[in-house]
Write a protein that binds this DNA or RNA. Sequence first.
RNA 1: UGACCCAUGGUGUAACGGCAGCACUAGUGAUUUUGGUUCACUUAGCCCAGGUUCGAAUCCUGGUGGGUCAACCA
Length: 586
Amino acid sequence: MEDTKIPEEEKAARSLNFIEEIIEEDIRTGVNDGRVHTRFPPEPNGYLHIGHAKSICLNFGLGKKYNGKTNLRFDDTNPVKEDVEYVDSIMEDVRWLGFDWEERLFYASDYFEQLYGYALILIRKEKAYVCDMTAEEIGETRGTPTRPGKESIYRSRTVDENLDLFSRMRAGEFPDGSRVLRAKIDMGSPNMHMRDPVLYRILHAHHHRTGDQWCIYPMYDFAHGQSDSIERITHSICTLEFEVHRPLYDWFIREIGIYVPRQIEFARLNVTYTVMSKRKLLELVRDGNVSGWDDPRMPTICGLRRRGFTPESIRNFAETIGVAKRDNVIDVSLLEFCVREDLNKRANRLMAVMNPMKVIIDNYPEDLVEEMECVNNPEDELKGKRKMPFSKTLFIERDDFMEDPPNKFFRLAPGREVRLKAAYIIRCERAVKDPGTGEITEIHCTYDPQTRSGMPESNRKVKGTLHWVSEKHAIKAEIRLYDRLFTKENPDDNEEGKTYKDYLNPDSLKVITAWIEPAVLSAVIEPAVKTAGYTTSGSSAAGIFDKYQFERTGYFSVDKDSTPEKLVFNRVVPLKDSWSKVEKVK
RNA sequence: UGACCCAUGGUGUAACGGCAGCACUAGUGAUUUUGGUUCACUUAGCCCAGGUUCGAAUCCUGGUGGGUCAACCA
């Protein structure tokens, strides 16, 4: 049996994604002397989202796997859209995900002078020229995907004239939009990107790093590949929409005559019930549909962090979804699975009642308080135990009682027995109703003193086990119950005249007050709320971001809005609930 | 009606010309002091048509379907 199993495992271990295959082939054939060097190249014009996380895990993961390096490089060639606010948040997010670029933090703007030199090379080779057409004219003469473009009348300028004009562009002699530097390639190319693309535009704008040093800025195509080359990147991994740019990427490298990196494209991530485009995410923030970039309903990394996702769960998610070239939409339930899987083994349990129903134990002494011992985490003995006060008046969930229950209902009902977890078996004697509304106000039960947890009698078979809190000991806390932001699997797939906003889920946030066992105070208040200064960094403020499983309910994370007076929890994800399915069937 | 890319259960991803596997989801059952976890099982797949081959998910050709590209954005 063993010898059939081993090859199977080896086979599985050898199962590579197409990028790893390319890399291993390159290593095998000695390309770049077997060196592997990747980079993650965000533009600092927005917050990172789960799609970027896929790219981060991919790039840094490859660097690690093949004993190589991974750079963080900000693609900051458009000063009008970029800002240090984004630079900072991006670095925080990458670090939080667990990756380290070491001393290799770079900016495309570091290379502006070098890039300018490369442009000069192309001009001298008669491969680039200054064009005086307006943006509109350039657009009109570019043609369409099915129709070739027309050559610019400035295409035939002499090298000297181009050199002169380009240096004067740099010197600031011309207003924005008056001239550009263009590559001289092929206006008839079936690939639009090869139709004399713009290399430099005039932009009298303040840059977050170079200040007012420059008034001409390179375009993405002219900056990205060359930056890769300068950094000796071996495998430049980007998303599919850049596939059509690759001939241009290669053209620049070849014509300038510099180190040759290789661009490889993969399919970007999509997730059900959310949107991923920076524009739409920005709109949601700007229009107040969410509270900010880090709203726990957002697919942003800071949103997921605040929601209570762990870096491990996101890394595992990225690993599980794989990498390929076909378009894909990942079921959000896989993300939820990944965080449950992680939190199940690390989150301590606590009892919390979300929707309280008063239970009075009629035969329990009036003022007695017993300390019940609870296991903190059944998956991890090392997490130890805690004490929980038990008294005559308790709260259980309203949902855990039914006056006239169906067959499959395993919880409390008149005449039925149920176990209070870590405490006693109780029996429901009667329910008291408000004579006016008919609403049940309290339930009277009796307990069996011989069934305290640990006693021999406690092993008696009962159908259900409930969580509970002692009324006078419970701590009130605000709980934010989050659900998916959209009601539609693909909000971008909108019918007649609707937009993605028409599918916003009105119930994506419900705020309630819950009653939590007092252990939550020592667990949370002490380290968290008493710690001065909360930050969103996730590392500096112990307590904030701490995660618990509220028994039978879900996983919850301490929100940064918590104060010494009021605890706030975010629901990361509910527990799987096979009872709700049974209920739905009927 | 151009160029390029893609096509395997509901979703995602394997297979390197030799029995289509894994994960999520869904369903069934067992265990359980969480209707959680864990465990077992079930349903369900190679876009179509030709060709090459002893043998095709895999190679070739042609369809079909989907995606990308016409910012002085990245």
